[in-house]
Design a protein around this nucleic acid. Sequence first.
DNA 1: CTAGGTGCAAAAGGTTTGCGGTTAA
DNA 2: TTAACCGCAAACCTTTTGCACCTAG
Lengths: 145, 145
Amino acid sequence: MSSDDPTYDESVAQGGFRLTRQRREVYDALLDVRDHPTASEIFLRAKHRMPSISLATVYNSLEALVSSGLVKQVNLDRAPTRYCPNTKEHGHFFCEKCHEVQDIELLPGQSPQSFILPQGCVVTHHEVSLKGLCQKCAQPAPLLS
Amino acid sequence: MSSDDPTYDESVAQGGFRLTRQRREVYDALLDVRDHPTASEIFLRAKHRMPSISLATVYNSLEALVSSGLVKQVNLDRAPTRYCPNTKEHGHFFCEKCHEVQDIELLPGQSPQSFILPQGCVVTHHEVSLKGLCQKCAQPAPLLS
DNA sequence: CTAGGTGCAAAAGGTTTGCGGTTAA
DNA sequence: TTAACCGCAAACCTTTTGCACCTAG
């Protein structure tokens, strides 16, 4: 996915909050490598380009980005929250061996509702998380022949 | 659901770990009110019947119950982990207003896979969480006529 | 006898907050 | 000018851990 993918249009960032240097660095770190980093990982990457940035500011910036809708939080169990700049509806796959996190896309035209919802309730968000082994980790040992 | 529902058969508890007084109190607290309590809430309920029990023991007991398969952990965002004695495959619905948590059942014969999985990966667990307003909270103000 | 459980207190670890100083609109 | 933001350090809160004692098998 290229960074000019409309899904990731940075101009959205103008809507509602100040796009400061710190927030840009945090967002750039997130767009740079799409590996669902944690706040600490983002902190290290941003610090590389802007040594004065603080961890608290990274948290604050992430919160601003999340509430502006540019970034989504991804939680699995009690592990540190990870962040994702893919704002399209999607799920996540967690590899239990290498701990890689991948986005998984919805089948076209489908909504992930195979559940019986109690009458009258209103759904505003849903999250689907799968755990297992990713392609690499599920593969048998490489053939040496 | 009655407590003699086979899904909740306590005899399963015999398999693999000691069913001590503390673990029984923790499990009973969980079966008693099916409201997905947190560890602290379970601690308070268990303490009521067994004042000497400690929070650390509640955590230890929950861990034992989880790894024996009798109890499942339920996480949403960074909120404290909640615990659920429903061992059937199901999802969770979180009310954003009253914070009630409800189990949601799968539609019969369906699996919750409307996602495109990367080739070759193996799925061992999946979790579906919905957020929104429950029946009560979604209802308009009560009619007074 | 001894492996596993318990309770206590302290530590860990991610995240949030308070506050004085700074900056962008 | 001033509301919003930054960086720092301390606080918070859930969860885990170390350890001495206890107990079931």
